[in-house]
Amino acid sequence: MSKGILLVNLGSPDSPTKKDVKPYLDEFLMDERVIDVPYALRNLLVRGIILNTRPKKSAKAYSKIWWEEGSPLIVISERFKKKVAQQLDLPVALGMRYGSGSIKEGLQELKEKGVDEVLLVPLYPHYAMSSYETVVAKAFEQKKIYFPEMHITTMPAFYKNQDYIKVLSKSIAEELKGFDYDHILFSYHGIPERHIRKSDPTKYHCQIDGNCCKVNSVAHHTCYRHQCYDTTELVKRELALDDDKVSTSFQSRLAGDPWLKPYTDFEFERLAKEGKTKLAVITPAFVSDCLETLEEIAMEGEEEFKEAGGESFKHIPCLNDRDDWANLMVKWIKNWEATEVLPV
């Protein structure tokens, strides 16, 4: 069999305009693993309510972070893919879960290069049904319809891989040099609490009560909340950070159902009012900077923190296309190519 790699990231609108943002949001929000309610209700919520107002607001936000070369997430993903591909003898393609440059297009590119055994790499460190799981489900759906001859192996979530933690920790340490912080906030993308329970194979372990994440369980393999807190703890240990100077929160939520807490925007206010005036924020749920990191945290977050009394604010970039991050991905891929073993 001829092997190849498909790296998959979230995706982006084609431009920061309402015209292009609306179909992107439609595809994203109509995903049953993102808004996981029956189709009729999802259709009403998304197309009857959300898409009447949100595209204009989102387009304005995208325009604030858009680069001359295009969407930051797309540009960074392309740069990362190039660095990985340069070190491999295998074909490497890039796909997006939503928007242009789809997973289907990525698989087609590999097929045209003679690939029939694909390593699918969701560019998400943690497992969540609205990120990692939907990438895998979409890839296998496309395989069944268009590429039945292909064999797909999926890279597992790598949130606690020792080498990954070292690369992430090094990137944080480098960014903290010269910044006299008194607190570091690990802000992860939020998801509804019900997603945690739906992803629990035991159907009873995940209570989201502050204790279940600390009790060993098979549920942790698919528990986004546990994996996020685990990443924070592993980095804290790697960098020997003080417990009282580190905390975890969750950003980006829709109104209505309860989402994972504490909420990042509430934490900005709480920390400032408690006298934490010099704040560094890292967003480890993402490997590529995007709207949620560049606008929601680096812009809006800084404003919210300073309005609440904070003095200095530092957004620590994602791993993006760092050489050590690309080198680590190459290491994982070469190991799979030679031994079929993937990182744990």
Rank of each mutant, 00 (worst) to 15 (best):
R42W: 10
K113G: 02
H315Y: 15
Y159Q: 04
D265V: 08
A128Y: 01
A40R: 07
S15C: 13
L120R: 02
E78C: 03
I76Y: 11
I50V: 15
K160R: 11
D244P: 01
A85S: 15
L185A: 07
L110A: 05
C223E: 04
N320K: 09
D230L: 15
K236I: 03
Q162G: 10
E117Y: 01
I165Q: 00
S12E: 06
R322Q: 15
R194I: 13
S169H: 04
R33V: 02
I152E: 04
S102W: 06
L10N: 03
N335Y: 00
S252A: 09
K104I: 06
R237M: 02
W325N: 02
R33S: 07
V344D: 15
L73N: 01
K22Q: 12
G309D: 07
D36Q: 12
T232L: 12
S12D: 07
L342M: 15
G256Y: 05
H183R: 13
K64F: 01
G48M: 10
E78M: 10
R253L: 12
L7D: 01
K278G: 06
P258T: 10
L107D: 05
L73T: 02
P122E: 06
K144I: 01
Q162M: 01
K214Q: 14
L342T: 13
R97F: 01
E105Y: 01
R253A: 12
R270G: 02
E292A: 10
G256D: 06
K203C: 08
G310H: 06
G178D: 10
